[in-house]
Simulated scan of single mutants.
Amino acid sequence: MTTHTVYVLLGANLGDRAATLHRALEHIRTDLGPVLQQSALYETAAWGVTDQPVFLNQVLKVLSVFPPDEMLEKTQAIENRLGRIRRERWGSRVIDIDLLYVDQLVQQTDTLTLPHPFLHERRFTLVPLAEIAPDFVHPVFQKTNAQLLAECADTGEVSKWLG
């Protein structure tokens, strides 16, 4: 059985954000596989649609035996279980779970693009990602997460959440 190293981004800006991220982590541990590492929680400015509450974000490193399309199904089921309602793209949400990387896989289907197509443009993704995987090399750009963060043009506020 093939085991995959997966980097997952969690985000929430409605309700008890920290509790929701913790519940999402527990569901990921149960449904996807063991969580090997987790970043700190970061409070981040909204991206895309900026007129909304600030987010809490966290990146997890997970070991999973599932193929990427099944990982996506499982993470979307977790979002649904935690009360996610999809209203508008990049809008407010109780929970968002994004697959950032699955190993060094490069894939584009109707439902899933790997690596995540916007990860290199978003400080709220790169800051926690570079915290736990600074030397991981993006399979398309051939740059580390630390390099992508250093070159990122996004000026959105990202700061460690002190709770």
Results as ranks from 00 to 15, higher is better:
residue 121 E to G: 05
residue 126 L to A: 05
residue 132 I to A: 05
residue 100 L to W: 01
residue 16 D to L: 08
residue 10 L to F: 07
residue 7 Y to H: 04
residue 98 D to C: 12
residue 12 A to W: 01
residue 67 P to D: 11
residue 16 D to I: 01
residue 37 Q to F: 06
residue 136 F to V: 11
residue 97 I to T: 08
residue 140 V to W: 01
residue 88 E to I: 15
residue 134 P to L: 08
residue 20 T to Y: 09
residue 35 V to D: 03
residue 17 R to I: 01
residue 116 H to K: 07
residue 49 V to P: 04
residue 54 V to H: 13
residue 78 I to W: 01
residue 14 L to F: 06
residue 119 L to D: 09
residue 91 G to I: 02
residue 19 A to S: 15
residue 118 F to Q: 14
residue 21 L to E: 11
residue 116 H to W: 04
residue 133 A to I: 14
residue 74 K to S: 10
residue 119 L to A: 12
residue 117 P to T: 09
residue 29 R to E: 11
residue 7 Y to M: 04
residue 75 T to L: 08
residue 39 S to V: 00
residue 79 E to M: 02
residue 88 E to K: 15
residue 143 K to W: 03
residue 52 Q to E: 01
residue 33 G to L: 06
residue 43 E to Q: 14
residue 79 E to F: 00
residue 96 D to H: 01
residue 139 P to Y: 02
residue 7 Y to D: 00
residue 22 H to D: 14
residue 2 T to D: 14
residue 134 P to K: 08
residue 19 A to D: 15
residue 126 L to G: 06
residue 143 K to Y: 04
residue 158 V to W: 06
residue 127 V to K: 07
residue 106 V to I: 14
residue 14 L to C: 05
residue 121 E to A: 11
residue 152 C to Y: 08
residue 5 T to C: 12
residue 110 D to H: 13
residue 23 R to L: 11
residue 48 G to I: 09
residue 32 L to P: 07
residue 48 G to F: 05
residue 131 E to W: 09
residue 52 Q to V: 03
residue 1 M to F: 14
residue 95 I to C: 02
residue 10 L to S: 09
residue 162 L to E: 13
residue 68 P to E: 00
residue 143 K to E: 13
residue 157 E to A: 12
residue 38 Q to I: 00
residue 140 V to N: 08
residue 46 A to Y: 05
residue 140 V to D: 10
residue 107 Q to V: 06
residue 22 H to M: 14
residue 38 Q to M: 09
residue 48 G to S: 08
residue 63 L to F: 00
residue 31 D to N: 13
residue 13 N to S: 00
residue 80 N to R: 15
residue 143 K to G: 13
residue 139 P to Q: 11
residue 111 T to K: 15
residue 17 R to Q: 12
residue 115 P to K: 04
residue 21 L to G: 02
residue 74 K to T: 07
residue 16 D to S: 12
residue 150 A to G: 09
residue 102 V to T: 03
residue 56 L to T: 03
residue 156 G to Y: 05
residue 66 F to G: 09
residue 27 H to I: 00
residue 57 N to A: 01
residue 71 M to K: 02
residue 9 L to I: 08
residue 106 V to P: 09
residue 83 G to D: 05
residue 80 N to E: 11
residue 133 A to D: 11
residue 102 V to I: 11
residue 114 L to H: 04
residue 34 P to T: 01
residue 97 I to G: 10
residue 86 R to P: 11
residue 34 P to F: 03
residue 29 R to L: 02
residue 91 G to Y: 05
residue 8 V to K: 02
residue 45 A to T: 10
residue 33 G to V: 03
residue 31 D to Q: 15
residue 12 A to P: 03
residue 128 P to I: 03
residue 132 I to W: 02
residue 9 L to W: 04
residue 141 F to W: 14
residue 18 A to I: 14
residue 135 D to I: 02
residue 84 R to F: 01
residue 139 P to A: 10
residue 135 D to H: 14
residue 31 D to P: 07
residue 75 T to H: 04
residue 88 E to C: 13
residue 64 S to E: 00
residue 100 L to D: 07
residue 111 T to C: 03
residue 98 D to V: 07
residue 132 I to L: 11
residue 93 R to M: 00
residue 62 V to F: 00
residue 89 R to T: 11
residue 13 N to L: 04
residue 127 V to W: 09
